[in-house]
Amino acid sequence: MAKAASQIEMPIGVVVRKTPGVTRWAQWNWRAVAVLPGAGPADWLEMRREGEAVEYHAATLPLTLWSDEAEAYMVNLSDGQPSIYLVLRDALDGTQPMDAVLVTASPFEGQDYADTGEELVEKIPMTDGLIAWVRDFALEHHRNEVFVKRRRDKKRTDLVEDGKGDVRIRQDSDVFRAPRRIVQ
């Protein structure tokens, strides 16, 4: 019997839509709208324009599934709409509107990036073929953890011994005494 691969990878193209901002503080509104499984390389390639709204094939990034993250993938698949999480950062060089950093199928990893506040994390619905691919990998690697109830020891912790301090430390005298003066 062959051992299953601990990780698999697929190139994922991400489509980002730019629309005019609705407030004076944000000139543009950026939203990830679609994924393109198995897409070729792209770097902010304009796909479609409708008035001021423009859709770009922003980037093609590798979607890597790890066997250790199988539980996270199962959580994602059990959601009403399984999704891919895209992490975007402000471009520092100014040649591109934003830098597409990462795509992941793990909602936990997406949440970690969202917690920093440095990046924009967009949730993009998975295609049916992508759902099947992630589901097959997750089912192959998912292991249920057996719940083990913790048992308390029988040691009584409500007993008080004044002046003894920690009972694990062997000391005959009071542990709260003043330290001895060291003669030099």
Results as ranks from 00 to 15, higher is better:
Arg89Met: 14
Pro20Cys: 08
Gln81Gly: 05
Leu65Tyr: 07
Asp166Arg: 03
Val103Ile: 13
Thr127Leu: 13
Phe137Ala: 03
Phe147Tyr: 03
Val15Thr: 05
Ala4Arg: 07
Arg48Pro: 01
Gly129Gln: 05
Ala105Gln: 06
Arg143Ile: 12
Leu36Gly: 03
Gln111Asp: 09
Glu71Ala: 15
Gly163Asp: 00
Arg151Tyr: 14
Glu109Ile: 14
Val134Trp: 01
Ala105Lys: 03
Val16Ile: 13
Ile169Asp: 05
Asp158Phe: 09
Ala114Cys: 05
Asp166Leu: 07
Ser78His: 11
Trp30Arg: 00
Ala34Phe: 00
Asn76Ser: 11
Glu50Ile: 15
Pro97His: 06
Gln171Ser: 13
Lys155Trp: 14
Arg177Lys: 14
Met74Val: 02
Trp44Cys: 06
Arg180Met: 14
Asp128Asn: 05
Glu71Asp: 13
Gly94Val: 12
Val35Phe: 03
Arg177Cys: 13
Gly51Gln: 11
Ile12Val: 14
His142Trp: 08
Leu139Lys: 09
Gly21Asn: 02
Arg24Thr: 08
Ser67Arg: 05
His57Ser: 01
Ile124Ser: 04
Gly110His: 10
Glu145Phe: 11
Ser83Glu: 08
Thr19Ser: 14
Ile124Cys: 07
Gly165Glu: 06
Val121Ala: 00
Val33Tyr: 05
Val160Lys: 11
Ala105Ser: 12
Arg177His: 12
Ala5Met: 11
Lys18Ile: 08
Arg17Asp: 02
Lys155His: 15
Trp28Glu: 10
Ser6Met: 10
Ala4Ile: 08
Ala39Thr: 08
Pro41Gly: 07
Pro107Cys: 15
Val183Lys: 00
Pro125Thr: 10
Thr64Met: 14
Ser67Lys: 09
Asp128Tyr: 01
Met1Leu: 10
Glu122His: 11
Asp128Trp: 00
Val22His: 09
Asp136Pro: 01
Pro82Ser: 04
Pro37Ser: 02
Lys149Leu: 12
Arg151Leu: 15
Pro41Arg: 10
Ser83Leu: 02
Arg31Gln: 14
Gly129Tyr: 02
Pro41Leu: 12
Gly117Cys: 06
Gly129Arg: 08
Ser106Pro: 06
Met10His: 08
Leu36Lys: 10
Phe176Asn: 07
